[in-house]
């Protein structure tokens, strides 16, 4: 069991989401940065569906009531375990009573804490992901508070020896501001000027950005015809263009349908680049084919799988 001894303002239980309920109006949700989330899980030998904690900005502390192992991934944070520095993308052993303190975010927006065995809250509609709008999933569908205690499942892999660090080339990296998009379903509503603007503008992330969507600041994109279409399904990564022309990138908890034209959709492999950008930071778009996007996604999944294999190998060798 772990206890949130000092809660940051935005801490939730997340996993890879609940993808099968769009027709009921339920977004797939889950971790904003599934790349980092999956890497953290792989580092502690968890299965991909295990739940962890999503920590967005702000400092806080977590205490282990039973010995366990954990890893941090995603945003670069200054953290200590019982006073000793904790590196990103490496697994650590926590003793009974150990305290993990996360002091500040040096870069990025979402850090993930994976505990060996996974956070064991009650799954809702097949997932432990917290969905705040409808108040279900995670712990009572809400943000975690100081004093909350969370059960941790049994570790599937006996982790031994010193913490394994993943090779640099397999680490999640977020330096590039350029993210790949595929052309959206309403591409024909946009003229050459809008396409030029979309692919040459350096956008900045607006402060009005959350788990539902990130607003972008940049020159408005003009669309021909109606600004409002009959509502149709949308997905995380969809770049919606409302009447004012200021694009919004839909994120994990976005509504399942939208009535604004979708000019492009951020590739699944690059949505973490968007997720990890803070208000005021830059973002550019580059158009690729769906085939290229899917190849990037498969490469990503392969890299996470490799980390899992390396961890298992390290565990066996002890």
């Amino acid at each position: 069991m772990i206890e949130i001894t000092a809660a940051p303002p935005f801490l939730t239980v997340q996993d890879l989401g609940r993808p099968g309920y769009h027709a009921q109006g339920v977004p797939s949700g889950g971790a904003m940065d599934p790349w980092a989330f999956s890497v953290a899980n792989a580092l502690v030998g968890n299965v991909g569906t295990a739940a962890g904690l999503e920590w967005s900005l702000g400092s806080g502390r977590i205490q282990w009531h039973d010995a366990g192992a954990f890893a941090l991934a995603g945003a670069t944070v200054d953290a200590t375990l019982d006073g000793a520095p904790v590196a990103m993308h490496r697994w650590y052993r926590a003793r009974e009573g150990s305290v993990l303190a996360l002091h500040r975010f040096a870069a990025g927006r979402f850090a993930y804490l994976a505990c060996a065995g996974g956070i064991d809250t009650l799954p809702v509609l097949g997932s432990r992901a917290t969905y705040l709008s409808a108040r279900f999933g995670g712990l009572e569908g809400r943000l975690l508070r100081s004093g909350d205690r969370l059960e941790v499942g049994r570790s599937p892999v006996p982790l031994r020896g010193v913490g394994f660090t993943i090779p640099r080339e397999l680490e999640p990296r977020y330096e590039t501001a350029e993210c790949r998009v595929v052309v959206g379903p309403h591409a024909a509503l946009f003229g050459a000027e809008s396409w030029s603007a979309l692919t040459t503008t350096t956008y900045t992330i607006d402060s009005a950005s959350d788990r539902m969507g990130y607003r972008l600041v940049g020159p408005p994109l003009q669309h021909q015809g109606h600004a409002a279409l009959p509502s149709a399904p949308v997905c995380p990564g969809a770049v919606q263009v409302p009447a004012g022309g200021r694009p919004i990138v839909l994120m994990a908890d976005a509504p399942t349908v939208g009535g604004y034209p979708v000019i492009a959709v951020v590739c699944s492999a690059d949505l973490p680049l968007v997720a990890q950008r803070c208000p005021g930071e830059a973002l550019r778009f580059r158009i690729v084919s769906v085939d290229d996007a899917q190849r990037a996604l498969r490469r990503r999944a392969g890299a996470v799988h490799t980390i899992g294999q390396l961890v298992q190998g390290a565990a066996v060798r002890g």
Binding site: P19, A232, V257, L297, R298
Partner: peptide, 22 residues
């Protein structure tokens, strides 16, 4: 196929892109 979502005049089929392509 992972899910089917409906709109007024369109529907969207979600699929596993790790095991098939567009």
């Amino acid at each position: 196929v992972r899910d089917v979502a409906l709109g007024y005049a369109a529907l969207t089929v979600w699929y596993d892109a790790l095991h098939t392509d567009y």
